[in-house]
Amino acid sequence: MCLAVPGRVVEIEGAEPAFLRGKVDFGGVLKEVALPFTPEVKVGEYVLVHAGFALQVLDESEARRTLDDLNQLGMLDPPPEGPG
């Protein structure tokens, strides 16, 4: 369920929160997206888009933190202590 794709907000228009719209860049393709659920979003930030609506502003620092954790594979998770 629920194909939702990250894209970068390049333009925001509209004053009334319920009708907030913007353009979102997906790898160079621009699509008009409704932004009423992410009124805080700023140009340049990434949003998760589903059915023409931004559902969330993606948290870059959170993403970086988890990826760093994963990439330093030694720190990935402590290995299990053995079966138990």
Binding site: L3, V5, G7, D25, F26, G27, G28, V29, K31, V49
Partner: peptide
Amino acid sequence: PVRGACEF
């Protein structure tokens, strides 16, 4: 761009 369009 083709990838981007295919994604969304």
